[in-house]
């Protein structure tokens, strides 16, 4: 596979530095507007507020004034009108349960799975990536090849397979299934997270201050943790944000294929709400699919945006996709 090595070439944004600056057609993205995206900006704040809200829904859903998950509202069923009413701003599903409360309580599973999965992937992939990028040579070849093998299986396919194999026990409990889904997504994200970490480590591992630390005789683990890691961290952080966004989507995909978090009235996730909402949608009640999709959309959008801001801010090059 063509591997794009990170280059350390960087065009100085100060206009007219190069000998033939006159011919450089100005890139409004490269020079002028970049400084805008480096700041958080109103959209950035919106994103943070939204993610804060999502975090609250995940950790303390009780805070939100919504009915319990098991409560049913016979009025809606009787009139076959599932639209919004007072106290139920999003209306009901086709069994007369409050939609908003399903979304709020579904947040926890989605977020736990995606955050834990990416944490797992980042710890494993990140460690190997750091080692490969720092030591280079044989160990790098071995690790990079391992990553390549991992990348040779599409992430979703790998996650599906793992989830299917490890949750093969039909009687597997809810907790176990969640764990399997988390592991499957996390494991499938190791190669990509590892490769990106490696690429970023490569660019830092030969910098002067790392060399200096080496010559002074600092111990290798110390150099990696004290000198390299802090510099690679912004890249890892921005990738983690994007990774969580992807994991949220993969959770939905797994749910649609039937190997996600088991759909149960008391254990919703955004993914299984979309999956179970399909049948309602074909009956003309699209609200559950739409609202759950919007939750996914806004969360992914916020994470992507913040990931971009972090990248712009710390000048992370996404060379090794």
């Amino acid at each position: 596979m063509p591997e794009v090595e990170p280059t350390s070439v960087k065009i100085d944004p100060a206009a007219g530095e190069g000998p033939d600056a006159a011919l450089r057609h100005d890139d409004p993205d490269g020079t002028v507007t970049l400084s805008k995206t480096k700041r958080l900006g109103p959209i950035g704040w919106l994103a943070i507020i939204w993610l804060g809200l999502v975090a609250l829904m995940a950790f303390v859903p009780q805070l939100f004034p919504v009915p319990g998950l098991t409560e049913r509202f016979p009025d809606a069923l009787r009139d076959r009108d599932f639209g919004p009413t007072a106290g139920h701003p999003l209306g009901f599903d086709t069994s007369g349960r409050d939609l908003l409360s399903k979304l709020v309580y579904g947040t926890r599973a989605s977020m736990i799975v995606s955050v834990l999965a990416v944490t797992f992937g980042l710890i494993v992939g990140g460690t190997f990536g750091l080692i490969a990028g720092y030591f280079r040579g044989k160990i790098d070849t071995v690790i990079t090849n391992a990553f390549n093998v991992g990348l040779a299986i599409p992430q979703l396919v790998l996650a599906i397979t793992l989830a299917a194999v490890f949750a093969s026990d039909a009687n597997a409990g809810y907790g176990q299934r969640v764990l399997v889904v988390t592991f499957a997504i996390g494991f499938a994200s190791i190669p990509i997270l590892g490769r990106i970490t490696r690429a970023n480590t490569l660019t830092w591992a030969n910098r002067e201050f790392v060399m200096a630390a080496k010559t002074v005789g600092a111990r290798t683990p110390r150099i990696i943790i004290r000198e390299v890691l802090p510099n690679v961290a912004p890249a890892m952080f921005s990738i983690a944000l994007l990774g969580i966004a992807i994991a949220i989507v993969v959770e939905g995909g797994l749910a649609l294929i039937g190997v996600g978090i088991p759909a149960d009235i008391t254990s919703p996730s955004w993914g299984n709400l979309i999956a179970t909402g399909r049948s309602q949608m074909l009956l003309g009640e699209a609200a559950q699919v739409m609202t759950a999709s919007l939750m996914v959309f806004f969360t992914v959008l916020s994470l992507n945006y913040l990931g971009d801001v972090v990248r712009a801010r710390f000048d992370v090059r996404d060379s090794a996709l």
Partner: peptide
């Protein structure tokens, strides 16, 4: 480049 008219036009 000014004489040629080959300058970027935006600024």
């Amino acid at each position: 480049r000014t004489i040629m008219g080959l300058l970027p036009s935006n600024n």
